[in-house]
Design a protein around this nucleic acid. Sequence first.
RNA 1: GCGGGGGUGCCGGAGUGGUCAAACGGGCUGGACUUAAGAUCCAGUAGCUUAGUGCUUACGCAGGUUCGAACCCUGUCCCCCGCACCA
Length: 805
Amino acid sequence: MEYNFKNIEKKWQKKWEEKKVFEVNENSKKKKYYVLEQFPYPSGSGLHVGHSFVYTIGDIYSRFKILQGFNVLHPMGYDSLGLPAENAAIKEGISPKKYTNTSIKNFIKQQKALGLSYDWSRLFWTHDSEYYKWDQWIFLKMFEKNLAYKKDSAVNWCSKCKTVLANEQVHNGKCWRHEDTEVDVKHLNQWYLKITDYAEELANFETVKEWPSLIKKLQKNWIGKSFGTEIIFEINKKKWPIFTTRPDTIYGVTFMVVSAQHPKLLDLVTDERKKEVKKFIGKLSSVSQEDIDKLDKEGVFTGSYAINPINNEKIPVYAGNFVVADYGSGMVMAVPAHDQRDFEFAKKYDIGIKQVIDGKITNSKAYVGQGNLINSESFNGLKNQEAIESITKWLEEKRLGKKTVNYRLRDWLISRQRYWGTPIPIIHCEKCGPVPVPEQDLPVKLPEKIEFGKGNPLEKAESWIKTKCPRCKGEAKRETDTMDTFVNSSWYHLRFVDPKNSKKIFDINKANYWAPMDIYIGGKEHACMHDIYIRFYHKFLRDLGLVKTDEPAVKLFVQGMIHGEDGNKMSKSLGNVVDPLNVIKKYGSDALRIFLVSVASPESNFNWSDKGVQGTYKFVNKVFKFFEKVKISKSSPKVESKINKAIKEITLDIENFKYNLAIIKIRSVLESIFEEKTISKKNAESFIKLLAPFAPHISEELWSKLGNKNLIILDKWPREDEKKINDKFEKEDEMILKLKSDINNIKGILNKEQTKVYVYVMPKEVEIYKNIEGINLFAVNDKEKYDPQNKSKKAKPGKPGIYLE
RNA sequence: GCGGGGGUGCCGGAGUGGUCAAACGGGCUGGACUUAAGAUCCAGUAGCUUAGUGCUUACGCAGGUUCGAACCCUGUCCCCCGCACCA
C-alpha cells in the first residue's frame, strides 16, 4: 500500500481532537509538566516556516513528556493586540478586530495541519476583553502600589508607529518595527511601570540557573547593575545627589554636567544664562537622535555653582548633551583628568584639569587607569581602589554620601497613542486628578465605533472618553493612551492555567499546580524585552500572593533562525519565504517536522532546503515501507540490541533537545534493521514510539496497524533492556562492512571484472559472514576449500583472507 | 569601547584529549535497474600508494602542554551578534 500521508495525517488529527487527548486538568496522579512556546502575533500573511520550527520543537518535547507519563499542559493563544494589526486593518479598510479574527482563524488552521499537541480548550486571544480586563486589573494593582505612575519626560517617538516607544523598543536609535525610522525625542506626559523596583531581583540570575547563559548575559547587560557612591553636592542651597563609580577622584572635580534633557534643568539656570541655555536646548531638539549620538560633547554654562562636599570648592555647573537624564540623578561630577568624556569637554570649553591620580595624562587622553592618589589632602598616597572605600566612608560619616547601586534599566514606558491596545483604566477628573476605574467596572472596553485618521482614534471617540469621576461623580474623561502590546504577553502563561475564569485573573490553586513553566521556548530577540517583562510581571503577581514561584520558567530554550534557501533572512521582498502549508501539501507534516529538527541542533540557525525536506520525506516513506514488508514474530539478537541501544540514547537526546542526533540514530536503526525478515512486536512498537514525538501521524498509523486499539500517544515511552544491548553486533556489522569494502577495494585495484569471490575466515566466524551474498565462504581449516593463491593464510581473527578471480 | 558567539570536507552540520580522513544529510561522480526520466539500490568523493596496505597532508593561522590535540593553554587573523557617551 502507498504511504498516503494526506489521509493518514487528517485521520489522526481528527482522532486526537475527538478523544481530547491533549486536554488536561489538575486532577491527575501524574506529575505535571508545562510546555509553552511563545505565542504568536497573528498577522494576515499567516504562519511561516520559522513559526513551524518553534512549534515543532515544543511539540516534540510535549509529546515526549506525555509519553513519559507526565500530565502535560501545552496550550496556545494569540497575542493579538498591537500596531501591525491596526495598520494592516487601516490599509485594508476593515476593523482591526475583523482583521485579527481572520488572521487567527488562519493561524489555527495552519497549526492544526502541523499536528500540534495543544490543549485547544484553553485557547484565548489578548484582544478579548475578558483577557485584557485582567491587564487592566494588574495595572490597577500596580497603580495602588505606586508601581504605575505618570510622569513628564523625554521619550522616544516613532513617526511611523505614531506613538511613543519603550526604551527596549529602540534599537540603535531606530524603532524596533522600523529599521529605517529614527526615533525622535519628545517631551510628553506618559504612563510608566516601575520595573526598576524589581531591578535588584531581576539582576539575580540564581533563580533562572537553567536559562541559556546567552540570555542571562544579555539581560545582565541590559539591567546594568553598577556599584558606586552617591555624593551630595549643594547647588543654590539645594541638595543634588550625584552617582559616581569613582569617588576616589572627587578632588579632581572641576565642573558638573547636568543632562540637557533634565526636567529640572531650568531651575539651575541663572537669569542671565537663560537665553544661552534655551538656545542650546533648542538646538538639540532640532537634530535627530542619530546625529546627537554622533555629536561632540557639547554644553553650556548654567550660571550656577555646586559646592564640592569634600573640600567646599565652588564648581561651575554645565548643561551637556552627553549626560543621560534618567540615569543616576541626571547629573555627573566631571573629572577631566581621569575620564575621557570629561576630558574632551574640558578641553573644548577650556575648563581646568586637575590630576588626582598618579599616571600619565597626554594632550588628548585622560588617565583612566589605577594609581596612587595625589592632590587629595589627607587621602594622598592611597591606592585609588582603597580610596574608593575610604572616601565613601568619610562621606558617609559626614552624611554627605553613601554607598549605592545603580541600574541602567529604566522604568517601562507603557503608554501608546494608538487604538488597538488595552485601554489604561484611568479616569481623569479635574477635581480628583487621575482616578482608577473601580474594579467592578472592568473591563474598560475598546469602543467599536471609531475613526482612523490622524493621531490616536481614541482621542476622537468622544462618547467613550466622556464619563463620570468614580470619586466625585463629576464630569471626567477617560485616559486615551493604550498599553504597550508587551503588557499582554507578560502574564499569559498564568492565564493558561485557568483561561475561562471570569471572576478572578486565575485560580491560585491552579496556578500553583502548573507554575512555573517547565520549558519555555522562544526567540533570542526577546531577551531584553519580553523575557524581562514576563519575569517582572511574574514577580509582581507573586507579591500579590497569586503564585508562589519567583520565576515564570524553569528552563528557557532559545531556538535558531531559519533563513531562506539563499541564506538570507526570509522576507517577502526577497521572495524566499517558505509557507509551511505548501510543504505539508507536498510532503506531509511528518516530513516537514523531521526536516525542521534534523538539519542542525534546534538552537542553531540554518537555511531552508527543499532537497532536505525531500530527503526526510523519503525517510518517512522508507519507514512505512519497512513495516509493510516486515513480519511480526521474533527479533534477532542484533535487532534487540540495536533497538534497546537506540531507546537508551534517543531518550537522552530528546531530553537535551538534541533532536538532530536523535533523528540520525533513528535513521541508522532503520538502516540496520531494514533487511530483517521478522521483528518482534515489542521491538517494532519501540521503534515506532521513538519516532512518535517527531512524526506523530505515521506513528499512530503504524501503531494501529500493529493491532493496537489505543492511541500511541496514550501509551508509554519505551524503556531499554540493558541486557539486550550487546556491542558484539555492532562489531560484527563493522566486520562485514569492512570485508565488503575490502573486496571492492581489491576489485578496484585489479581493475578487471572479477566475478568470483572467495573468503577465508576463522572457523568461529563463519556464522558472522555466512549470510553475505555473492561470496564463497570457507573456514580456513576447511580441507576442501578452493584457494589457489593460499590467501587463507592471510586470514586473522576479524579479518578474513580474500581471493578473487 | 564593553560584552557574547563562532571559524571542521564541495555544502549544511556532528564531534570537546586517543577507537577521526571525520557521524548524518545534501551535492557530485561511477555502476545496477529502466526504452528513458524519476524513484530505489550499490560504490566512490584530501593526496600518493597497495590485492584488502602503508604513508603524507588536514579541522582559520602560529606556537605550547601531552606518550597522544579538531578538542586543553598562549598569541594572532577573520566573521557574526548584543549594548553602545550609564558617570
